[in-house]
């Protein structure tokens, strides 16, 4: 295990070091100490690394991730795993707003709560939240799965395209063009797989599924002024 002291060596050196690892690297296990809420920790990785951040992070931790696993042993600031392409990001604590925004792939696991706009404009990422999500989560979500084991705030899935939303608790309100959908066997299977990979103990049967009513897809003359 390589240990990197962020306070002593600085952010630029950290990201340059991690980004320089090739897919064939033998130095796959990394530990970042003294993160102290810094921004942009472990961003733009593109190798099968396993990076553990020992503490809470600021904005954009693990952004643009490909292949790597990034574990945050604390809470994450705004935009964690933003635009992730592949790999896994696990937050042990809470995540601030727009966690997993615009993500194209990979798995984001939040063991605590996520605040507003979780999964905004998600494009294929899978997000599993053990706690609650705030308002406007999955706003304009296009593809992927958002699993919420707790409650969802106002306007869940507003203007959603084809992402699938699974919520176990209460949904405060649904956004425009988002509706409850039938939970079919293939959805239960997807959910079971996601919960297992997220190492969260919950029964898929306890969730309800939400998705697009597809009424905003086409221009409707009755909506014109």
């Amino acid at each position: 295990m390589q240990t990197f002291d962020l306070e002593a060596n600085g952010l630029r050196a950290l990201n340059e070091t991690l980004q320089a690892q090739t897919p064939q690297t033998n130095e796959t296990a990394w530990e970042v100490v003294n993160p102290r809420g810094s921004h942009a920790i472990a961003v733009g990785l593109d190798a099968p690394l396993d990076v553990t951040v020992r503490g809470s992070t600021g904005y954009y931790c693990a952004g643009m991730n490909q292949q790597a696993t990034v574990r945050i042993k604390g809470s994450a600031g705004p935009g964690v795993a933003e635009n992730m392409m592949s790999g896994t990001v696990v937050v042990d604590g809470d995540a601030s707003q727009y966690a997993g925004a615009t993500g194209h792939g990979g798995l984001l696991v939040i063991k605590g709560n996520a605040s507003s706009r979780c999964g905004i404009s998600m494009k294929g990422i899978d997000i599993v939240v053990a706690g609650n999500v705030g308002h406007m989560s999955a706003f304009m979500a296009q593809k992927g799965n958002l699993v919420v084991c707790g409650d969802a705030g106002d306007a869940l899935g507003d203007s959603i395209y084809e992402a699938r939303l699974f919520v176990r608790g209460e949904v405060k309100s649904l956004g425009a063009d988002c509706e409850e959908k039938e939970m079919r066997p293939e959805h239960l299977e997807t959910l079971r797989d996601l919960l297992e990979r997220a190492e969260i103990d919950a029964r898929p049967e306890e969730f309800r599924r939400y998705g697009s009513a597809r009424k905003l897809y086409n221009f409707d003359i009755d909506n014109a002024y």
């Binding site: 102290r36 809420g37 809470s56 992070t57 600021g58 904005y59 600031g77 809470d94 601030s96």
Partner: peptide
């Protein structure tokens, strides 16, 4: 931001929330 709080005494065991 959280980084404004990191030097407070006992922050490691504080209840931190948004």
């Amino acid at each position: 931001e959280y980084r404004a709080l990191v030097n407070l005494p006992g922050i490691e065991d504080a209840r931190v929330w948004e």
